[in-house]
């Protein structure tokens, strides 16, 4: 065991330790930057593929006949084109999609975010033209598996409980988990997560209601 700092004054030793620790921190940071650069493109590709698989789940193929990726639009935290974009809780610009059936608008898929127990939860929601939900899925989350993680379809069917509901069939006061007097199930061991998701889904519907005309017209303009 070498002990190079054995015979130096305490002040000098502290300085030495700090410098050494700093050097290691720099080295570690460099390693992380390098690894991030190396893997970023590939990871983004996987995320995009995953997102596109989910699109079909939130707006089933039976409800539309267009290529969703060809009818996409951008939504950001301060998109000027929309009213009350803050309802979606977006932290960054994300992609929305317009679904059409025989050239007529059939619904939209909107990205939205909320804050869970383990940080940001990124979701997508499919809404038919009549304002009813065709599906909700989680894109990214950091919730505890087995507890809040049950918002993910791979763990539980909970998220399908939103299907078919709308602002008209569920009054404002019922957009809560059952424990709070609302209509939506909660799960044992996690309160923050389902509460956050229910509130966020409600907000996404409010956003759709406020921007219906713009949203449903958004993609059709691009069509040839």
């Amino acid at each position: 065991m070498s002990n190079p700092a054995a015979q130096v004054s305490p002040g000098k030793a502290t300085l030495q330790h700090s410098l050494r620790l700093g050097a290691f921190a720099l080295g570690t940071a460099a390693l992380l930057v390098f690894a991030d650069n190396l893997t970023k493109a590939q990871i983004d590709l996987h995320r995009l593929e995953f997102e596109q698989q989910l699109l079909i789940q939130v707006l089933p193929a039976s409800l539309h006949d267009n290529d969703l990726t060809a009818n996409s639009f951008r939504l950001g935290p301060d998109s000027r084109a929309y009213r009350q974009p803050e309802l979606l809780g977006l932290s960054t610009t994300r992609t929305g999609y317009l679904a059409t059936m025989k050239g007529m608008p059939a619904g939209v898929i909107l990205p939205f975010e909320t804050e869970g127990y383990g940080g940001a939860i990124v979701l997508v929601i499919g809404i038919a033209t009549d304002g009813s939900i065709t599906g909700v899925r989680v894109l990214q989350h950091g919730e505890t598996p087995g507890l809040g993680g049950q918002i993910d379809i791979s763990e539980s069917q909970w998220i399908t409980g939103f299907n078919q509901h709308s602002l008209t069939d569920t009054p404002e006061s019922k957009w809560q988990v059952k424990g709070d007097g609302g209509n939506f199930d909660q799960f044992v061991g996690a309160t923050i997560t389902p509460r956050a998701v229910v509130a966020a889904v409600h907000n996404a519907l409010l956003f759709f209601e406020a921007n219906k005309n713009v949203l449903l017209a958004a993609g059709s303009k691009k069509e040839p």
Binding site: N3, Q16, L21, T28
Partner: peptide, 28 residues
């Protein structure tokens, strides 16, 4: 280079960084 005073800190830093790298590679 790892004197007793900084050994633990460096080890933890290294563990966290290598785990993150493994996580990134796995994700990719």
């Amino acid at each position: 280079q790892l004197s007793a005073a900084i050994r633990l800190a460096v080890m933890l830093m290294l563990m966290a960084a290598i785990t993150t790298v493994v996580e990134l590679v796995m994700q990719a």
